[in-house]
Simulated scan of single mutants.
Amino acid sequence: MGVEEEFLLLEPDGAVAPKAPEVVRRIGPNDQIKTEYMAYQLETATPVCTGLDQLRRELTRLRLVAAQAAGQSGVRLVASGAPPFPAGPMGALSEDERYRELARRFPEATEAGGTCGCHVHVGVPDRELAAAVLTRIRPWLPGLLALTVNSPVTGANDTGWASHRYRAQLRWPTFRPPGVWPSAERYDRAVRSHVTAGRAVDESGIYFLARLSARYPTIEVRVADTGLSVADTVLLAGVVRGLVATLIEDVRQRVKVVPVPAERVSEKLLAVARGGARTADEAARLLSKITAQLDAAGDTGEVYAGVERLRREGTGAERQRRLWNRYGPTAAFVGALAEATAPLSTG
């Protein structure tokens, strides 16, 4: 498995800071930290990891490296699904021709500003098997979002949503649950159809909430907001790997499945994004489905402890909202988010 995390760069007062190229230059040659769609965003990518302990170390290392370089540029690295404040150059696109084309073709989506997600890759070299898993993963996407909501504040306001990012990302034509495709060839045909119809610029621009990666032999789950803390991301990765392993076993055992209609999945996702789903209930459903595979991977203790932590401390959205209620639109709020993202005092 591997994980890609997206982050904001914020001025101490909360304004977005289009300094990603400068921060990346400070880090030096490094293919694991790069600029993103907006010049106030960074993306990190772990190497392939085989265990959650290894993943935790890599996520922590990358966050600390990025946070230290950001600090040298006078800005803060913040893991939030959406920029909390409206101040600053929200339209600061990165200097990349592909991004310019995306902005030209999808101006309404670009106007939403840079949102930040967490993408979990799980290796499934057999593309036919991976396509079958995509069909079966659809009803579990709302539960994965419920574990990871982390964007309640934007425009210097509490939006009332748990994931404003999810609402904003719906402006992209392909930010939808995967379809029901009986084969990898049918999946590829659907991707080509979206590109031909202008709903995506290329295969990498297909933003299904779970997809076959355009670059790696993996299933890439893209539904989640970026994790406020490393612990949030490790929990998501453990659950996603356990879920994919479970669904692979279901395919191999020929467990019958009746595909859930896309409309029903989308309605549930929207309810979760609004904060209308109990995280504990969604977590319990997921755990009941995946515990056997968690046991097989040795991840049961880690994942169950992570779910218990969420029960005690709340989701990223709930923790972020508590900080907002305490500090409001101040530098103290930005500092608290940055400390949760990469606690430099312990690094």
Rank of each mutant, 00 (worst) to 15 (best):
T159P: 04
E108H: 14
L147K: 08
V180W: 10
S163A: 08
L141N: 04
V133G: 02
E101A: 11
A131T: 01
A200L: 10
R104A: 15
R189C: 00
P139F: 11
A112H: 05
S204T: 12
L93R: 05
S94M: 11
W172P: 01
L134V: 02
R186H: 14
V195T: 02
V149A: 14
F106M: 11
V149T: 15
T154L: 09
R176G: 01
F208R: 06
P177M: 10
C116P: 04
D126E: 12
R100S: 12
L144W: 07
P107F: 14
R171C: 11
E108C: 00
R192N: 12
D202N: 15
A168N: 14
R98T: 13
L170A: 08
L147R: 09
E128C: 08
S183Q: 06
V191D: 01
S183N: 07
L134W: 13
V201P: 04
D126W: 04
R186T: 12
P173R: 05
T110F: 13
V195S: 05
G179E: 12
E108T: 10
S151G: 13
T115G: 09
A146R: 01
D158I: 00
G179H: 15
T135V: 15
L93T: 08
M90T: 03
L170M: 11
L129I: 02
T174L: 07
G117L: 05
G143P: 03
T148N: 14
